[in-house]
C-alpha cells in the first residue's frame, strides 16, 4: 500500500483529494504548509508527493527545491497540482523544474488516479 504525501493549503480541496485517494487504497498524509511538508517528507518517506505548486508565499517551488536538494527526499517522485496555470503551462513547468508529473485543477477524478498509478508504476 503506497504512502502518499499531499501538500495542499486549501483545506476543502485537501480533504476531498484525501478521501478520493483513500478510497482507492492509498495511505494519505497531508500538510498545509511547506515547512510541515519538508518535515513530513523526511520523516514519513512517502512513495509519492502531490504538491500544490502555488502554495501561498511562493512556498511551493521553494519546497520543491529543498526536496530535490536533500539526499533522503530527492528521489521521491512529485506531481504538481495547480489551479493557476493552464494544463500546458503546468506541464511545462513540471518539465522545466524536473517534477515527474502534473495535474491541473479542476481535474477529473480519474485523471488524478491514473496519473498517480502511472508514476508509481502500477
Amino acid at each position: 500500500m503506497a504512502k502518499l504525501l499531499l501538500i495542499e493549503d486549501e483545506p476543502d480541496q485537501s480533504k476531498m483529494i484525501k478521501i478520493r485517494l483513500e478510497t482507492r487504497g492509498y495511505q494519505v498524509i497531508t500538510a498545509h504548509k511547506a515547512e510541515d511538508g519538508i518535515k513530513l517528507a523526511q520523516e514519513e518517506k512517502p512513495d509519492l508527493i502531490l504538491l500544490d505548486i502555488m502554495l501561498p508565499g511562493g512556498g511551493g517551488e521553494g519546497f520543491f527545491e529543498n526536496l530535490k536538494k536533500s539526499y533522503n527526499t530527492m528521489l521521491i517522485p512529485v506531481i504538481f497540482i495547480s489551479a493557476k496555470f493552464s494544463p500546458k503551462e503546468l506541464e511545462e513547468k513540471a518539465d522545466q523544474l524536473g517534477a515527474e508529473g502534473a495535474i491541473p485543477k479542476p481535474f477529473e477524478p480519474e485523471e488524478l488516479i491514473a496519473k498517480v498509478r502511472e508514476i508509481l508504476g502500477e
Binding site: E10, Q13, M16, A83, K84, K105, P109
Partner: peptide, 20 residues
C-alpha cells in the same frame, strides 16, 4: 493568472466534492 487561480480553485473543490 490570479483570477484564473482564484476561480479555478473553488470550482475544483466543488467538482471534486460532487464527484465524490
Amino acid at each position: 493568472s490570479n483570477v484564473s487561480h482564484e476561480l479555478r480553485t473553488p470550482i475544483s473543490i466543488v467538482k471534486e466534492g460532487v464527484s465524490l
